[in-house]
Amino acid sequence: MAIILHNSTLKLKIETPGEKYRGSRFDWNGTVTGIWYKGKKILSQEKKLFSRNIRIYGRGLHNEFGIKDAVGYDEAAPGGFFPKIGTGWLVRDDKPYYFYTQYIIDPLEFSFKKISDTKAVFMCDSGIRNGYGYRYIKTLELLNDTFKVSYELENTGEKKIETTEYVHNFLLPGAKSTGPHLELKFNWEFDDKKLTERVNIDDIMEFTSNGIKFKKTPELEFFAGGIWESRKAEPTANSAWILEDSASGIVMSESCDFITCHMDVWGHNRCLSPELFKKISLESGKTEKWNRTYSFSMMH
C-alpha cells in the first residue's frame, strides 16, 4: 500500500517497491506517483491515455540509474545478470543495452518505513554478483512548501560503479494540457542551435536565452536533447529548473546540490519532463550522497 506524506500545503503519494510498477527500467525504491499542492494535482504519466500500463511505464517523479550507461552490462554474458540500481538484477540479452527493453528481473529485497507524516525512508541491498554490489537509501521529507529527496548509494562490491541518475519528472501542474500557459526556465543560459537532438520541437517551442515557452499544445511527443551541453558559460551554481504555469498559478522548481552532467526536456500533450542528470563514479567501499529539492509557490 502506498505511503502518504502531508503537511498544511503539500501531499505526496509514494508507491512502495513492487506495489504497481514492476518494469526493468525505473527505480522501485520509493516512487512519488502523486503530488498535490494546495489541493491542485501536479503529476502526470509517461504514456498518454489508453496506452498506459502502470506495471512497465513511468509515472510521477520516476528516477532511473543508467539509462545509457548500464552498470556491468558489457561484462555479463547473454543470459547473465547485471545490476540495475534500485530495480533488481536483470538478465542480459544478446543485443546492446536499451532502456526500453523489458529485461527479465530478479527483484531485490526492499524495506521501507514511514517515520512521520512528513518523512519516509526506503532501502534496498543488492547483495554481490559479478563483483558488483550496493546499498541504496532514499529519504523523502516535507518542509512547508518544499520536499527533499535524499539519496545515499554505497558501493559494497569490488568493482567501481560508473553510471548516471536522473528523474523523469512527469509534470502536469493543475492537470491541464501542455501548452502556452507553461514556461520552463533554467539557471544557466544556452544556445538552442547547439542542441544535440531535436524531435518535433521547432513548431511548438520558442526558446529564450535560459528557457522554453510553448507556442501551442503539441500533437506528438517532443524531445530537446543536450540543453546542458548547449550552455553558453560554465556554471556558477548548482543546477536547477523552474516551471511556471499561468493556468493554475503554480510555480514549481527542482534544485540540486550538484552540477548536472546532462539535461534534456521531453514530453507530450499532457506531460512535460525536465531531466537533470547526476554523474556517479563510486569506488569500492565508498558512499555518495546527493539531494534533489522540489519547491512550490503561487504566481503573484
Rank of each mutant, 00 (worst) to 15 (best):
F82Q: 11
L171E: 02
I212M: 13
K289Q: 14
Y97M: 05
R22Q: 14
M252V: 08
F110A: 05
H262A: 11
Q102T: 04
T208M: 06
G34H: 00
Y132I: 02
E152K: 15
F223C: 12
T31M: 07
D94T: 10
G58Y: 02
K47F: 03
I227P: 11
E221W: 07
G131R: 07
S177D: 13
E165I: 05
S51F: 12
L182W: 00
Y100L: 14
I161Y: 00
Y57K: 02
V91F: 02
Y21E: 04
N291C: 14
T139A: 11
I115R: 04
W89K: 05
A247K: 04
R129Y: 11
Y166Q: 12
K113F: 04
T156N: 11
I56Q: 07
V251K: 10
N130A: 15
V121L: 08
T33M: 00
G225F: 09
T101R: 15
L184P: 11
I227H: 08
F296W: 01
I4Q: 03
E75L: 14
K289V: 14
N7F: 02
L143R: 06
E162S: 14
Y98S: 11
T9R: 00
G285W: 02
I128W: 06
R59L: 05
L171H: 08
L43T: 05
T31R: 15
P83D: 06
N53Q: 08
N7W: 04
E254Y: 01
K119G: 04
G66P: 12
G72T: 09
I85Y: 07
E19V: 06
A77G: 07
M298S: 09
N63H: 13
G66I: 12
E64L: 15
W241T: 03
K41R: 14
W266R: 06
D145Q: 07
F65D: 04
A247M: 06
Y98C: 06
K160A: 02
R55A: 14
N29R: 10
M252P: 01
L108K: 03
M252E: 09
I250S: 00
